[in-house]
């Protein structure tokens, strides 16, 4: 287990290192940051002075090393638009995105796993067809459209839930559903197929033949096995949600990291953009690592040699 963990950890570090290069070059190779920072209508002299102050005149590899060093010290640079340190700006926006992501994945898991289990317990019945139909239909609706639909139904027609801002828990209900529903079809399908396999497995037959109650067999002996691939999928989906939160936060005017990214792109606030890119990539890498560790806990064949 230790060797496995160390190898996985090294891999994660390597992946994040390479992504940091990608994040940096993506932002720096794509235009003149000095001109963007100086703003429209700045004189060439102003642009030049910005270039000097921020070190944009030095070669890119050198800039990258400087940036990385500072990142290790917790300094992500300054947002020239918001006139604040990037770390501070991110700290202000992150709680909303983390809350949203957690609620969204909770919604997705609580909806899709029971549905997947039910569909597997009663294959080819109405429940199963309904679940699969929901999955196929759900996958076809773009998240922004679904978000607008939710707003129209619950915010405009029924007027039961707020449709923008982040003042109370109620503000998170619609965004979490809009963000979470997109992950449900995949999780539901994988749960269903995993449960179908697990229910036919020999050890489940053993559990039944020894008189264990049905719910116990289903949850303890079948679901646990079906969950092994699902855990990895949930980690991946949570990673996607970090990216997908851009759309949802924009629609619901939630001032989270996604909204910040969208605004920063339009303001050419490059220090913020590269920090967000790096953080999301690192979060994704850590999530997959966490999924592997969790799978080790579920399945002793991974954990114990």
């Amino acid at each position: 287990m230790l060797r496995f963990l160390v190898r996985r950890l090294l891999m994660t570090v390597l992946v994040v290192a390479v992504t940091s290069v990608v994040a940096f070059s993506l932002v720096h190779l794509s235009g003149d940051p000095a001109a963007a920072m100086a703003g429209e209508g700045a004189s060439p002299a102003d642009v030049e002075s910005v270039r000097k102050t921020y070190g944009f005149d030095r070669p890119l590899p050198e800039q990258y090393v400087t940036w990385l060093k500072r990142v290790f010290e917790g300094d992500f640079g300054r947002s020239h638009y918001l006139r604040a340190s990037v770390a501070q700006v991110l700290a202000d926006h992150a709680p909303i995105t983390i809350t949203l992501g957690a609620l969204a994945i909770a919604f997705a898991v609580l909806l899709s796993i029971p549905l997947g289990v039910l569909a597997a317990l009663y294959p080819n019945t109405l429940v199963d067809r309904l679940a699969v139909g929901l999955a196929v239909g759900g996958q076809a609706v773009p998240s922004f459209l679904f978000a607008l639909l939710l707003i129209y139904i619950f915010g405009v027609t029924l007027r039961v839930l707020p449709i923008s801002g982040s003042g109370s828990w109620a503000h998170f209900v619609l965004p979490a559903i809009a963000l979470g529903y997109y992950a449900t079809p995949a999780i539901m399908r994988l749960t269903r197929s995993g449960m179908l396999d697990a229910l036919q497995s020999d050890h489940v037959r053993t559990a039944r033949a020894y008189g264990l109650p049905a719910w116990r067999v289903i949850i303890k002996h079948a679901l646990r096995h079906a969950m092994i691939p699902v855990v990895s999928l949930i980690a991946v989906q949570l990673g996607f949600m970090l990216g997908g939160s851009i759309v949802i936060e924009t629609v619901f005017a939630l001032k989270g990291v996604g909204y910040l990214a969208w605004q920063s792109i339009q303001r050419s606030d490059i220090e913020v953009i590269q920090a967000i890119l790096l953080l999301i990539a690192a979060a994704y890498a850590l999530l997959t690592l966490a999924a592997d560790v969790l799978n080790g806990a579920i399945d002793p064949r991974i954990r114990v040699g």
Binding site: S201, R208, H225
Partner: peptide, 24 residues
């Protein structure tokens, strides 16, 4: 009623011991 019989009064030894026990 079956549950009180299975494992209690009638027990089964299955063909493939590799897969008949829960690996978890």
């Amino acid at each position: 009623e079956w549950r009180g019989i299975r494992g209690r009064r009638i027990a089964v030894v299955f063909q493939d011991p590799m897969t008949s026990l829960d690996p978890c």
